[in-house]
Design a protein around this nucleic acid. Sequence first.
DNA 1: TTAAGATAGTTTCCCTGTTGACAATTCACA
DNA 2: TGTGAATTGTCAACAGGGAAACTATCTTAA
Lengths: 145, 145
Amino acid sequence: MTKKVKITPSVAEQALIRLMRVGDRLWRESDNRFGQWGLTDNHYNVLRILNGASQPISQSEIGRKMLSSRANVTKLVDVLEQRKFVRRLACGDRRVNLVELTDEGAKFIEETLPVVIGAANEEMKPLTREEQKTLFTLLGKLLEE
Amino acid sequence: MTKKVKITPSVAEQALIRLMRVGDRLWRESDNRFGQWGLTDNHYNVLRILNGASQPISQSEIGRKMLSSRANVTKLVDVLEQRKFVRRLACGDRRVNLVELTDEGAKFIEETLPVVIGAANEEMKPLTREEQKTLFTLLGKLLEE
DNA sequence: TTAAGATAGTTTCCCTGTTGACAATTCACA
DNA sequence: TGTGAATTGTCAACAGGGAAACTATCTTAA
C-alpha cells in the first residue's frame, strides 16, 4: 500500500463535484435524445437561440451565446443549413453571415418540443416545484460574475 | 421574418438549462486548470479515485466511478502510468488490471491540491455556506434514481 | 487617403472520448 | 465436465469540439 493524501473536502468542493456530475449526466442524456434526430445537443441549441432571437443574428453572436468557438459554429450552421433548418443571409457588413431560422426549422422545433419538455420535467421530477425554484436562483448566483 | 415557435419554459426547464450551463462552465475551467500540468480533468479524476480507494482497483471499476468508457480508461491509465503517477498490478483474475497510486502520484496530488481547493472555493464564493449546503442536498436528490 | 489593427468566417490539424470488434479469461449451469 | 454467456482490457475507426493560421473585410487614426 502506498502513501495516500488525506483529503477532507469542504462543502464548496462537494457541491462543486455534484454540480459537475449532474451537468455531465444532463449533457449526455441530452445528446442521446437529440441523436435520435441526427443532431447534437449543440445543434438544437443553435435552433433554440435563433428561435428566441427577434432578428437574424451573426455566427459569432451565436458562438458567444453558447460558449462555442467560431470554428465550431461554422460547422454547426453548416449541417443545419444542409438540413434546411437554417439560412445564411448576406448583410451590410460583408464579413458577417446573418443566420435565420427557416419555416422548416421552426416546424422541427415545434414537433420536437414536447419530447424535450417532457424529458426536462422527468429529469427534475425528484424536486418539488419550490426546490426547483431555489435551485434555479442558487445557480443564478453562480452564473453572474 | 419567418415563423417562430412560442416557448414558455417551465421552472423545471429553466433550472435544467442553468444546471447544464453551470456544469459546462465548471468542466471548462477545470480542464484549463489541469492543462497547466499537462493533464485532463479526467486524468486527475482517476488520481483522486485511486487516492480515495483503500485498495488498488480495476480499470473497469474506475470507469464505473467516473462514467467513462472502458476504452477511455485504458488511455487515461496509459498516460498516468507513463508519468509514473500510477502502476498496473496483476491479480488473481487474469482479465483485470488492478491500478494503484504510486508515491509519486500521491506527491503530485499533495502538491496540486491547494490550487484545486482554492479554485473550488473561489468558484462557490457567490453562495453562503448555507446556500452551498442546500445546493448540495438538492443535487443529491437529482443524482439518486 | 492610407496603413495598422480589429473582426468574421473558414479551413486545417489535433485532442478527447465513444462505439464496436476482438482475444483472453472466468462464470453459470445443464 | 464442458459449453455457451459474461466480463475485462485493448485496438481501430469515427465524431465532436478547440486552437491557430489564413483570407476578406471593416475601423481607426495619423
